[in-house]
Amino acid sequence: MTPLSQLLPGQFGKLASLNPERGVDQRLMALGLLPGMILKLIRKAPLGDPLAIEFGGQVVSLRLAEAENLIVDVSADCPIQRPRQP
């Protein structure tokens, strides 16, 4: 179990938990980022923050501090369920 903020660019993970009380996580849930969702850290912005992640066929940017509370499971066999490139 790793915070999303510690994923390396190109690494996949399966969302294990988030904090639904937070505004950021509520926004992400509306976009379909729910526990069990496969996601990929595509890249970090040139200054190291924010991050670009991909899930459910879309690319979304969020800040490093906001990604700390999103816990992902990197051991799950993610790449098989590789999300479609938008």
């Binding site: 937070r22 505004g23 950021v24 926004r27 992400l28 976009l31 924010p50 670009a52 879309q58 690319v59 979304v60 940017s61 969020l62 800040r63 501090a65 906001e66 938008p86």
Partner: peptide
């Protein structure tokens, strides 16, 4: 509080 900045990077 620092506002969440969730931004779609569209096609």
């Amino acid at each position: 509080k620092p506002q969440p900045f969730v931004l779609e990077l569209p096609r």
